[in-house]
Simulated scan of single mutants.
Amino acid sequence: MDTERSLIAVSLGSNRSKGDKDPAEWMPPTKYAACNYAADWVAAKLRWKLTADRAEKNKLRKIAVGCPRTAVTFTPAP
């Protein structure tokens, strides 16, 4: 948990609506937040060498097209 992108404070309502859903099932309501959320999601997946299912990959690709200025950076976990 030593990365700066691990946790983001959100309202109770947002937290409840998201639950344990992945990006294929839930995204933040604003484009700016969605771009950052998707980048953070991908960074966490890459850092920890986690897999993504087809629906998740498709949604993340679709979001990425609308986020040309958002970069994904990560440090591999030890």
Rank of each mutant, 00 (worst) to 15 (best):
L46E: 05
A77P: 05
A64T: 10
L60E: 03
A39K: 05
V65M: 10
N15T: 10
R47I: 03
S6C: 09
I8E: 15
A64C: 10
K49C: 04
A33S: 09
K21E: 08
A55P: 07
P78A: 08
T51H: 07
C67E: 02
A44I: 09
A77Y: 15
C35E: 02
K49M: 12
R61G: 00
D20Q: 05
R16I: 15
G19S: 05
P29M: 03
A24G: 12
R54I: 03
P76Q: 04
A24M: 01
W48F: 11
T51S: 11
L7P: 02
A24H: 04
P76V: 03
C67I: 03
A64F: 01
W41F: 13
A24Y: 01
R61Y: 00
R69P: 11
D40Y: 14
A44G: 10
C35Y: 02
I8A: 15
K57V: 00
A34G: 05
I8S: 15
V42F: 09
V65A: 07
P28L: 10
K59E: 12
R61I: 04
K45M: 13
W26C: 02
C67Q: 01
K49Q: 11
N15S: 14
T30M: 11
S14N: 13
T75C: 04
P29D: 13
K62C: 12
A33Q: 13
A34K: 05
I63G: 08
A64R: 09
A38N: 06
D53Q: 07
Y32P: 01
W48D: 11
A77M: 15
L50R: 13
Y32T: 13
L50T: 12
L50E: 14
R47E: 06
K18H: 01
T73A: 08
A38Y: 02
K21S: 07
P29C: 08
D22Q: 03
P29L: 05
A44N: 12
D2I: 00
A43N: 05
A43R: 00
V10R: 08
P68W: 07
C35N: 04
